[in-house]
Amino acid sequence: MRNKILLIILFTIPFTVVSQNCVEFLSVQRTGIKYPWKYDAQSKAGFFTAGKSSQLNIVCNEGKDFKISFLASSAILKFISISVTDESGKEFYTLGVSESKKKDLDSKKQFMLSLQNQKVNIKTGKKRIELDADINKLTLEINKYQEEVDNATYSPKTFFEFTPAETVNLIINISVNEASTGKGCIGALISNKKAEKSGF
């Protein structure tokens, strides 16, 4: 029995030793920021499990350019949604497919089906021309939406760069889908630099 306990303790040692906390994770990343960008102390990383969501409020001063890079553990990577909004809810950035976008795409596809069904019954005439025009227009819209959804799913842009025209409070909403079986760290690495003005 004593040997069994000893074995259990021994097997847990390596995994305890390599455990790293999410705060340390940011301190490693901050060394990679290159001039003229500078680490912003508002950066934050935290531990997330399935269904967990968190809201990070950051102040972005006028006169600076900002860059927010998002980092996540691979175990939860496919299950995270991130958005950056202002206090009014206006969205400036999203990572992952937004639910509203998915719903819009589905409803457009449904509408397309109904138009194609109508086409079967209307063979000629002005109505048919209008119907073809509607289908063409809708096809373009669906393709555009599909491309956006695919990009968000398979090759998401993981950073967001901007200039505040005034000092603003931005809200970074991060959540991990309930379907996630893993858990891990998600970090918002914020950097800033003196705002550049174009021209002479």
Partner: peptide, 22 residues
Amino acid sequence: KTDSTETDLLSTDEQIPDIVYQ
């Protein structure tokens, strides 16, 4: 890799608070 989203970490942290003010 500051623009990367993929890192492999084990975490001993407590969960991040629901709202954080920086």
